[in-house]
């Protein structure tokens, strides 16, 4: 037991179907990544250019952030995949806990008293 642990594998142990699956997965990842970069670029352009008014910029960027958030979770952190019940549970409870916290902080730190 355990003599060949340091030897590299010559050939992949995956079947052809699995390799095709992996290729597709890779493509989706790169597409999602490119899309997210472009969203970020849009956000930079919105703040950087002086033509676009601030009234538009703020809700626009918040909207982009929401899209980014879901892209991150589902594509980069694999929440869309099967057998991710536990990570899903942790992520959802994290969102569940942090949302009221952020809202409360935003309200309580403002000038208005409730």
């Amino acid at each position: 037991m355990g003599e060949n642990l340091s030897q590299p594998f010559e050939k992949s142990a995956m079947s052809k179907d699995e390799r095709i699956q992996l290729e597709r997965e890779k493509r989706i990842q790169i597409t999602a990544f490119a899309f997210m970069i472009s969203l970020t670029l849009l956000a930079f352009i919105a703040t950087g250019s002086e033509i676009i008014p601030a009234v538009f910029t703020v809700p626009f960027i918040v909207g982009l952030a929401v899209i980014q958030f879901f892209l991150q979770l589902f594509y980069f952190m694999h929440l869309k995949d099967k057998n991710h019940a536990w990570p899903n549970m942790m992520m959802v409870s994290g969102v569940f806990l942090s949302t009221p916290t952020i809202i409360a902080l935003a309200l309580l730190l403002g000038e208005t008293k409730f």
């Binding site: 806990l97 009221p100 916290t101 409360a104 309580l108 008293k113 409730f114």
Partner: peptide, 18 residues
Amino acid sequence: GFMVWVHHMFTVGIGPVA
């Protein structure tokens, strides 16, 4: 336990509703 932290800060003056 995550939804109660302001009870340490009742006297800060956050307001009656909060």
